[in-house]
Amino acid sequence: MVQPTPDTQALLLLLSRLGQSRAEPAPLTAKDYDQLALWLQHQGLRPGDLLRAEGRTRLRQGAVRFVDGDRVEALLDRGGALGLALEGWLSKGLWVIGRGDSDYPRRLKQKLRREAPPLLFGAGARSGLDAGGVAIVGSRAADVAALQFTQRLAQRCARAGLVTISGGAKGVDREAMTAAFAAGGRVIGVLPGDLERAALEKTFRKALEDERMTLLSPYDPGARFTVWSAMDRNKDVYALSDFGVVVSSDFNKGGTWAGALENLQARWVPLFVRAEPGTLEGNSRLVERGGIPLKSEDVEGASEWGTWLRRKSTVAGEALAFPPEQSDLPI
């Protein structure tokens, strides 16, 4: 069992509900925490230092200007709850990575910067999270054609050795995940909640045990998913990948639409959009806004799949906008 680093212990104390339905005092929001993280970096401190007497003193002297110092201290005092919550999670095979840890996926920090989730809870394979891959997303109410397209696409990715990344929702997301691991591929699912329950699902269990799949969530493993968290985790799905594919999207509503638009604006990854007769209105509208059309015959094509996606992105002027190495990545 891997024990969290002191940095991650501190992050959990500050940000997690630690299994409580109503935590008192309320944990920091990611935004609150980011303020604190900036201050820590400025002071040459790390989150783990807050677990020591000296770090506490510095906090008392310095940070009160922008965060409620008493609240932060009260949160840090929740050591007992942390032990208990972690024991419950880790004993079920779950794990947690903090934004300051060396195995935290770098591309999340590079692309999302200060919006990168401070904590990532996970089940299954813990390594290989930074390998990129193809994000496959789409609406929950997908028709047969959309699901068939999803299936072929996921199989193609698996055969090409590309990781399939998705959101774990019903419909396209799940279809992508099950088809990819059935074809022997690696899969990452970024869940908007309910990680603890999903990790026990018969569908996923074996693939998780064999470490061919990772389920990730930026939220407490016991937290229920909300519309907000579903929206919020879209950026993580894109940021973990090299390419995004929207299989089907409503127009001007729904999480798929919002996430795809967000990606087009932030230019995290080149965005492909399934372009065939009979798709939802959102698909064509996304193409109008810069999405690269993708047809069934493209997916069935003979060329090397990764290369094809890359070449197509370059032609469309959406070459990988991978930011250069940065020394001031957030902690």
């Binding site: 069992m1 024990q3 969290p4 002191p6 212990q9 501190a10 104390l13 677990l51 020591r52 840090l76 005092d77 050591g79 007992g80 942390l82 032990g83 208990l84 972690l86 024991e87 880790l90 004993s91």
Partner: peptide, 14 residues
């Protein structure tokens, strides 16, 4: 056995 892992997972403040 689970107590031990609970104790091990306590932060150094406890």
């Amino acid at each position: 056995r689970r107590i031990i892992s609970f104790l091990k997972l306590l932060p150094p403040t406890v």
